[in-house]
Nucleic acid binder design. Sequence first.
DNA 1: AGGTAGAGTGGGCATGCGCCCACTATGAAT
DNA 2: ATTCATAGTGGGCGCATGCCCACTCTACCT
Lengths: 199, 199
Amino acid sequence: MPTGVAIRDVREQLFDAAERVLLRDGPSALTSRAVTAEAGCAKGVLHRHFADFDDFLAEFVLDRVDRLDPQAAALRERAGAGTVTGNLADALTALFGSVAVAIVPLVTFRDELRARLRRTWPAGVPVLTEACTMIASYLEAERALGRIKPEADIDALAPTLIGAAHLLFADRDSTPPQDGAVRRTVDTVVAGVVREPPR
Amino acid sequence: MPTGVAIRDVREQLFDAAERVLLRDGPSALTSRAVTAEAGCAKGVLHRHFADFDDFLAEFVLDRVDRLDPQAAALRERAGAGTVTGNLADALTALFGSVAVAIVPLVTFRDELRARLRRTWPAGVPVLTEACTMIASYLEAERALGRIKPEADIDALAPTLIGAAHLLFADRDSTPPQDGAVRRTVDTVVAGVVREPPR
DNA sequence: AGGTAGAGTGGGCATGCGCCCACTATGAAT
DNA sequence: ATTCATAGTGGGCGCATGCCCACTCTACCT
C-alpha cells in the first residue's frame, strides 16, 4: 500500500495533467478520459479520488485559484517596494498566460461545475473571475501608493481584464498569432486608471 | 411544394430557435436536437438545409453578425448628431444583452465552428469579437468628434469590452444577479478613453 | 507464509450527441 | 387524375463521454 501522502500526489498529478490538456487542446478537450490518459493511469482512478468528474474539475479550479494567492502576494510586495507604475502593465501582461484565464471558458460551459463552485463562492462573482482576486489585490496595493486614481472601480476593472484575456485566449489558434494584442489591451485599460499616463 | 421563400423562412426559424436556446439555456445546451425541438420540427430538417451542425452554427453566427451592422450605423448616426459623450457609456451598456455576446463562449468551445468561421474571416481576430466591428465603428465616430483621446487604441478597447461582457454573461445565473456590474464595467473602461471625464 | 485492506485496472453499461436514410406528405406540372 | 420532385419525419446507427463494478496487484499486519 502506498503511503497516505501518495494519495495527494495522485491528485496533484491529475491536476497537472488537466492543466496540460486544457492549455494544449483547449477546454472542449478536457474530458475525464483525456485527463487520465495524460496522467498515464486508468480512467477509474479519477472516480476513486473524486465523487465525479465535475467534482474533480471543481477541486482542480480551487487548487489553481489557491496557487494564485502567492502570486498576488508577490505582486503586492513589488508594489510595496516602490516599483514604478509602468510595471503595472508589465505585471498584468505576464498574468495573461495563466491557467486562471483558461479556466474561464471551462466554467462558462459546464453548468454543473459552475453550480458546485457557487457553493464555495456563494457571492457568485468570483466563480468566473478566478484571477480577479489576485489582480484586485495588486491594484489595491498600487492605489494605496497613489499610483491609481482614487475613484477607479477596481472591482469592475479586474473582471474587465480577465474577460479581455479570455477573449484573446479563445483566439489562441489564430494565424498569425496576435502578438501585441495582449499588451495593447492591458495598456488601454491601464491608461484609464493610472494617475499619470506613462507616456 | 412550398415556395422558394419558405426555405429561407425555415432557416430564419431555426436561427431564432437557436438564439432562444442560447440565451435561455446557455451555450452548452445549444445542440442540434434542442434547436429543432425549439423550432417545433423534426431533427432531420436541420440536416437538409445545412451540411452539418457546425455549418448551421457558422451561418447562424454570420446571420447574427450581419444584423449588427444596422445597429452600428445607428450608433454612428447618433454620434454624428452630436450626442454628448456621456451617452457613450449608455450606448455600450445597451449592447451587452446582445446575442453577439452569447456567441463568444460558443465559438470558444466549438473548435470546428471556430475553424469554419476563420474561412470567412481569415484575419482571425473578429472571429470571436463579433460585436467589435460595431463598437469600434461607433468609437471611431466618437473620436472623430473629438470626444475620445486621440491616442486611445480602439482596436484594443472593443475586444476588452466584449470580453468583459462575456464574463458577465457567463455569470448570468448568479444569485443575486449582478445588476450594476455591467454599467460599472463599461464606466471603468470608458472613463479611460474619454477626453473629459463625465463627472 | 498467509490474509487483508486499499489502490489501481479496464471492460462494459447508459446516455446523449450528430448524422444517415428509408419513408410519408404536399403541392406543382402534365 | 396522375406523376413526381422536394420538404419534412423519425427510427436507429456509430461514436464519445461519464460512470459502475468485478477483478488484479501490492504493501502491510499477524
